[in-house]
Nucleic acid binder design. Structure first.
Lengths: 327, 327
DNA sequence: CTGAAAGCGCTTACAG
DNA sequence: CTGAAAGCGCTTACAG
């Protein structure tokens, strides 16, 4: 066990000033030159840093809440990494809360972060419910949603519509006529709804309207089952467009088991551009969003809000087409 | 902007008791039945929850620091998910700090978590330096290392030696004689050193001693370059054993580009058992550690330490062999 | 610019 | 069991 940690009082005593002065030093407020030197010496002597949780009466906490639905996805870690770096660079500390997809807990997390007096909150969003809206109305901390559009509030979202359309046009341009979609529920407005709308629009724009659909969730297992069904049935589609890369992996697995070649027997597309997708045989044709930029834009936006600066209500993030070889 | 959030004083006032009594209610201390009812009513009326950061003079903070070297790996998200769930279930809140592999920042994070008065700290470890040891000596909070053995302290580690040996024996048993290792630096004691020792021991146990080595880091890019070199040179190995699945992916990529078939022309093994590894063509032969269990053991151990209960200094976590088809 | 005082929202001995 | 008081480690008006 170590000796007791130094507090602001110890520093003040050693520097021969009041703790108010030490506090000002710590917060870069104006301070006379000789006081500055004395405090500096004492701070270095004790290797003192303030306990951020003890700033109970400060107007700023320098903490930003980050609420996420899972750690274990291909996108979240990249988002967290970028956001963490950006925030620390600006002198803020992120406070991560994992909700494991529990929307009720997500709402309660907003509440508790607000109570902890964070300066703002970023939500890596899956669904925005009335309970979310009700909670927001009760809060002081500004909130920015990432990944789902929030009407009436602030959000940063992928340009799913444009990206989907580009992909749809590309697929149709390669001559496929009978298409299938392995897609997630429309309850997910960004991925389930808008992204699919884009794909269908792109396909239709090039004359492809024969499109069947199978509903899946985000797991590999569900995708695999649906793919098996889609590929075994009569009148098999020529191409399967998938809501995510992981879902496309399910098609790869099913195709291999059924002895179907990609893309000769069945073409496949994903959405995400995961690192592993280029390692598949053949590499997956997909779309990659610039999630790092999205994360930083988000963090920047929440800081602006907390400083009462104006921000755009909805900011769109661009995408990149990755040709691969599965189409 | 919302009305001011209720504090313990508001609750006390409404319940007609002192805030001490409310505090006791919140912390499940003994309290008379009628006081209990009154406080309960007031707490529910305000939907009150205590601000955990305001417990400055409490002996327990109910917070556990979790220090990690990256969010973006195949293992960390699984560790964080399991640990988060375990800790919350026990009434603790994890405080995550991402060091991005910066060991100096890792040491400083230990210090600042200690200052924040967390009840304990888990470090998802890559390297344990003298600076770590020096810092630990200055701290009050107990620390548990996950993934790297900490002599003289508490750690939870994979049984890399046994797992490596099992894999080496298996490979040698399949008849390969000329082996190669794509491995990370021995500075990493768990993966770089012990895991490799196990592999070599297993190979040697079955008579395979012709083993060359290429040093790589944990990135796909480095693995790909090294694999290209290993496979292009004269006297190509028959099998490449890789320190991780991701490194094995680099071999897949290189082999495809060189027109080499797996496993006919070159066999490959990984270490990790990532979800995507079974999707490769052919599925990767690998080892999977039960990281979820390891994470929970870790969390459990740090809670025990904070309660001054006895714990084992070093706890080993088991593994599972995944045959795949790449050998 | 600086210090004494009050306060942030809690917890904790200590009397009663 | 309970309340008044003191305290946790900071920040912040407010005099001077």
């Amino acid at each position: 066990m170590a000796e007791q940690r130094a507090t602001i009082n110890d520093v003040a005593k050693r520097a021969g000033v009041s703790k108010s002065t030490v506090s000002r030093y710590l917060n870069n407020k104006s301070i006379r030159e000789d006081s500055y030197a004395k405090v500096k010496e004492a701070v270095e002597y004790y290797n003192f840093k303030a306990n951020p949780f003890a700033r109970l009466s400060a107007k700023q906490s320098n903490m930003i809440g980050v609420v996420l639905p899972t750690f274990d996805s291909t996108v979240t870690p990249r988002v967290l990494t970028a956001m963490d770096k950006y925030l620390r660079g600006k002198g803020y500390s992120p406070l991560f809360i994992n909700t494991e997809g529990d929307l009720d807990f997500e709402v309660r997390s907003l509440e508790s972060l607000d109570r902890m007096r964070v300066d703002g909150i970023v939500v890596v969003a899956s669904f925005i419910t009335p309970a979310h809206r009700a909670q927001l109305a009760r809060m002081n901390a500004p909130v920015v949603f990432l990944g789902q559009r929030f009407e009436g509030g602030v959000s940063v979202v992928n340009d799913d519509l444009a990206a989907g359309e580009a992909l749809g046009l590309y697929v149709a341009g390669r001559g496929y006529r009978k298409a299938g979609c392995l897609w997630v529920s429309e309850r997910d407005e960004a991925v389930g709804l808008r992204r699919k709308q884009g794909v269908l629009k792109g396909l239709a724009g090039a004359g492809v309207t024969d499109v069947r659909s199978w509903e899946v969730d985000f797991t590999l297992a569900a995708a695999y089952r649906a793919a098996k069904q889609a590929l075994s049935g009569p009148d098999r589609p020529e191409v399967l467009l998938c809501a995510t890369d992981r879902i496309a992996y399910g098609v790869y697995k099913a195709a291999r088991e059924l002895g179907l070649r990609i893309p000769e027997d069945i073409a496949v597309t994903g959405f995400g551009g995961y690192e592993t997708s280029e390692l598949m045989t053949p590499p997956l044709t997909t779309i990659r969003f610039d999630v790092e930029t999205a994360a930083c834009v988000c963090a920047d936006t929440v800081l602006k809000l907390s400083a009462a600066e104006p921000v755009d209500q909805t900011q769109l993030v661009g995408y990149q087409f990755i040709p691969g070889g599965s189409v």
